[in-house]
Write a protein that binds this DNA or RNA. Structure first.
Length: 402
RNA sequence: GCACAGGUGGGUGAGUGGUUAAAGCCGGCAGACUGUAAAUCUGCUCCUCCUAGCGAGGUACGAAGGUUCGAAUCCUUCCCUGUGCA
């Protein structure tokens, strides 16, 4: 078993768990910051560690184009290359196939696409995506899928979903044959320590386990906005068999309430003992909601991108720090936030940095937003734990450990 | 003092007789952003009024006059700036 997922407690649909990957133990539900090109834009790795980030995203398409998979592999894989020894998940490139729609052509075999950098022609298939992801050496890899566009008619949605299923089988087949080719040691004993929520380590104790440190491959459910197709996609993806399942094809322009309905309709068909990863979602409210519904992993560019654009998430709602109203505001960005940015700087200063186009604005804004997202998930985990405390005696939410 | 070159909206800078309230860029003010082609993108940015619109007036291209159906654009005088020569 390449990856272990242990559910500690559940509350309603929400689950508190540990995802034990080759490089880190990840407390779930977790928000995974996006580091597309081997960097969470603007934030040094040691700061990410300080924020409590246990798992990052990398992107196969982007790293394949630049600096190239072989370069990364030669430098110890993505972990060695970007000097990050906690967990990494790589996206397969499936989403780029969707978002670079002007530059690509999809066939059963795979996707021919033009580089957005220099226009050169490339080809991605389930096999080549897996080859690249194994070379990058993330802890968790993703099957090569087709993210169905929105809107899409039923026929198109089914056709797309069926192809994603065939690609999932091909991804798995290639992966199983080559997964030991990762650029790091695959077997070792692994000591890990999990601090309890809030950073208080009093109750945690180091555990040592013998782990098979191989990569994992997650399957991705598609099916557009159609509940029946989602159900079928989920069941058939589970049938192929993966250690974790992602819900893809959402946040592609559909109304947010539709997103939620589709997530709920999909979750019920995914095995309770496997991690469930909702791709590309969402706002702080959304990630809290979905965590409560039983989603274990989420990623989104929103906190990092919005930060660079001057949009900050706070306990009092969104703050567009560029607004003139903050020009002389001596108060902290978010009085309820304990992050290093809110502890130290005024809104007026943050606004000035942004207006003056100082690089520090991007750094501080991103640090805050990520901090807020990670805090949000800590609160969610805490509330699930508390929920267990009150409901456990009746056995309502008990969940057998794997 | 003389000779050139210039003076355009918050800044810069196009435009050199007719959809020009005046390009573009910057600045300013808002908005968007959800498996990152994103330090990006979009809108507004002279004043007043309203039925809020490819709406109606007003004011505007150093100043004042003039030519013309029509001038930021042509002419005259004046003021100012830069460079060169005395």
């Amino acid at each position: 078993m390449a990856i272990q997922f242990e559910i500690e407690v559940t509350c309603g649909g929400g689950r508190l768990g540990k995802l034990i990957t080759p490089h880190a133990v990840v407390e779930t539900p977790v928000f995974m910051p996006v580091g597309t090109l081997g960097s969470v834009k603007g934030v040094p790795q040691d700061l990410l560690e300080e924020l409590g980030v246990q798992i990052l995203l990398g992107n196969t398409y982007h790293l394949y184009l630049r600096p190239g998979v072989e370069t990364v592999r030669g430098l110890g894989g993505l972990h060695g290359f970007m000097a990050w020894d906690r967990a990494i998940l790589t996206d397969s490139g499936g989403f780029q196939v969707f978002s670079l729609n002007e530059l690509r052509k999809v066939t059963e075999e795979g996707v021919t696409f033009r580089s957005h950098l220099d226009g050169s022609s490339h080809f991605f298939s389930p096999e080549s995506s897996m080859e690249a992801q194994i070379g990058l050496g993330a802890d968790i890899t993703m099957a090569f899928d087709e993210c169905t566009e929105f809107p899409a008619d039923p026929e198109r949605t089914r056709t797309s979903m069926e192809m994603t299923l065939r690609w999932a089988e091909r991804s798995k087949r290639y992966f199983e044959e080559h997964k030991n080719e990762v650029p790091w040691k695959t077997v070792s004993s692994f000591e890990f320590q999990v601090s309890s929520d809030g950073g208080d380590a009093r109750n945690s104790k180091p555990e040592t386990r013998k782990l098979d440190r191989t990569q994992s491959l997650f399957g991705i459910v598609q099916g557009g906005m159609d509940f029946e197709l989602r159900r079928e996609s989920a069941l058939r993806t589970v049938e192929i068999g993966f250690p974790g399942y992602a819900i893809g094809g959402l946040s592609v322009g559909e109304p947010r309430e539709v997103t939620r309905e589709v997530v709920e309709a999909t979750l019920e068909h995914l095995p309770a003992d496997k991690p469930r990863y909702l791709m590309g979602v969402g706002t702080p409210e959304e990630i809290a909601t979905y965590a409560g519904l039983g989603v274990d992993m989420m990623d989104c560019v929103l906190p990092t991108r919005a930060a660079r654009h001057g949009l900050l998430f706070t306990s009092e709602g969104k703050v567009s720090i560029k607004q003139a109203r903050y020009a002389a505001d001596a108060g902290p960005l978010d009085p309820a936030c304990g992050c290093r940015v809110c502890r130290r700087y005024s809104r007026a200063y943050l606004r000035h940095l942004f207006a003056a186009n100082e690089v520090l604005a991007q750094v501080l804004n991103t640090v805050h937003n990520l901090s807020f997202y990670l805090d949000t998930m800590r609160r969610v985990r805490h509330s699930i734990r508390l929920g267990e405390g009150t409901r456990s005696p009746s056995g309502v939410s008990s969940q057998p450990k794997p």
